[in-house]
Amino acid sequence: MSATMPISAQLINLFASVILLLAFAMLAQRRVLTLINLFALQGLALCLATLVAAVSTGQTHLYYSAGLTLVLKVLLLPWILHRLVRKLNVKSEVEALINIPATMLVGIVLVMVAFNVALPISELSQTITRGTLGIALAVVLLAFLMMITRQKAITQVVGFLSMENGLFLAATSATYGMPMVVELGIALDVLVGVIILGVFFFQIRDQFDSLDIRHMENLKDN
């Protein structure tokens, strides 16, 4: 029973739940700026979860990855995204393909699937954070869903970044994080990816006068 669970595991579970909650909040959010703020909060919860895992297990590289998360996902990426939104002058309302309540219901089903799939895997793991594997998988799937249901390029990028959060949480919960080199590589990839996509946004807007990706589906007509 949960009565014997150590306090660090409880804290990690709490932060993981917060990450899941924020994933849903992002799925339901209509405004781009709030979406970016929610993404920053999700990064913060991830950072705290990693920090608790680091303190309770004494693995030094987890401290580094917590710091990396803080700098990259809480400060730098939201700042870049905020600047992009300001420069691109994006309208505040996000267009969703499916209406929000239906998206949320699909999200619930995804969470159930993720929990069921993760259950046997997390039984094999020996870490104190293994319970959060299902949540990590759910966050990845929810981010996928967000990328599918949103039309604007910028929200798709936020979905992509949120997916990376989920993968990071999965790595932490299953094996106490990836090797440092891999983690650094991914962090750099994400950063460069966002910068390149930022340039893309300007190109897309110049070409189509809109950030709506529907315009990119018909190549020959224009």
Partner: peptide
């Protein structure tokens, strides 16, 4: 609907994390 969703999530999290 959001309230219902949060409540169901609570139930799922209970089954996943705490049991």
């Amino acid at each position: 609907g959001t309230a219902f969703l949060l409540a169901v999530l609570g139930l799922l999290v209970r089954l996943m994390l705490e049991t």
